[in-house]
Write a protein that binds this DNA or RNA. Structure first.
Length: 310
RNA sequence: GCCUCGAUAGCUCAGUCGGUAGAGCAAGGGACUGAAAAUCCCUGUGUCAGUGGUUCGAUUCCACUUCGAGGCA
């Protein structure tokens, strides 16, 4: 019964590991089209800092979920799940192979594990209320409250993890169900596609060198100007300014740190991000690892063999 | 050339009245279900510059050597 499901290829891996290049080359060879799984490349006018592939790099391969959200808009995994599913369906209609590419583990997981999100809107008023309560009474009070509502979920959530504590409370308030219950409901149905998941990486030292190099290139290409333009054009950034490279440059533009400090900080934060990504992908024991330093054709062959098999 | 101070973790440094050492940062590992490039948790990695002396025992005291900083000529 797996046989009837359309096949979908996934290429993930840490930042700067060569996902873009591999995916485009693969797409050219197997009639593929690409769906980006990247929480920052979705934003318009954020090109240099997100290392968004350029038109030339794409070589005519269609790319979905790139460059289509205003930096002043909010976007979430649930939005992504919906948009990505539409994109995959679209590609399959043309009898092309969907290739999902990106470094946002949460986004990829939403598809590969087919996590279903109930239709709820963000209640920003309630979130504001919670923030105020934290200011007044401290986070601990909310932590205890969350523990009463959903003791199971709180086993893995730290007393200091403000975001997740708030989320437990938000979910209960809006749905009347606990996070634990909702998560169970979200995993009812098996994925509608036959996913073949690959991760690409290289040894840590070389990866870090590439990251450092890439940051230098971004600065040369005008990252600072890009951030200045954004700040001029928009005044609220619900999520876009969380992106690496953006918050650091803002801090520099505000005069909090020197340019050199900013560059070093950005390199460091990006290295840490790559580490976190690796932790995420290592968790999936079924993932097939590719060596980024191997010839590209070799990696493509690995993918094609796996894809054609079974 | 002489004098003084310093040499301890990847970096900056603390410390051991002689019983082989610990902070911050960096780093490593982990978690992750609507902010995820976010958020959070855990972990101390060491020829205590080298050689010799004193001592049951030296990273600690002494001598010399090397290197570094400052001062005097």
């Amino acid at each position: 019964m797996q046989k009837n499901k359309p096949k979908v290829i996934v290429i993930c891996g840490p930042t700067a590991s060569g996902k873009t290049k591999l995916s485009i080359e693969l797409a050219k060879q197997i009639q593929g089209e690409i769906v980006s799984c990247d929480s920052m490349q979705i934003y318009q006018e954020m090109n240099i800092g997100t290392a968004k592939p350029t038109k030339e790099e794409m070589q005519g391969i269609p790319h979905y979920l790139l460059d289509f959200v205003s930096p002043s808009k909010r976007y979430s995994v649930a939005d992504f799940k919906k948009d990505a599913t539409l994109a995959i369906e679209n590609i399959l209609q043309y009898n092309k192979v969907p290739i999902l590419v990106g470094g946002t583990g949460l986004y990829i997981e939403s598809l590969v594990k087919n996590i279903e999100y109930p239709e709820i809107e963000l209640d920003s008023n309630y979130r504001k209320q919670l923030e105020e309560q934290i200011q007044e009474k401290g986070l601990e009070v909310l932590y205890e409250k969350a523990k009463e509502i959903d003791p199971k979920a709180m086993e893995t959530i730290s007393k200091n993890d403000k975001k997740r504590i708030m989320r437990v409370l938000e979910l209960y308030r809006q749905t009347g169900k606990t996070k634990t219950e909702l998560e169970k409901l979200s995993r009812q149905n098996p994925p509608p596609y036959d996913y073949h998941v690959f991760a690409i990486t290289m040894d840590r030292e070389k990866l870090y060198n590439r990251i450092n190099q890439r940051v230098d290139n971004m600065i040369e290409q005008g990252l600072i100007q890009e951030v200045e333009n954004l700040l001029k054009k928009y005044n609220t950034f619900p999520t876009a300014m969380q992106g690496l490279g953006y918050k650091e440059v803002v801090s520099y533009l505000q005069g909090n740190i020197t340019k050199e400090e900013m560059i070093e900080k950005l390199k460091m934060e990006t290295r840490r991000y790559a580490k976190r990504q690796l932790t995420w992908f290592r968790k999936d024991k079924n993932i097939k690892w590719l060596n980024a330093l191997a010839p590209i054709q070799e990696n493509i062959q690995c993918i094609v063999e796996d894809y054609s098999g079974e």
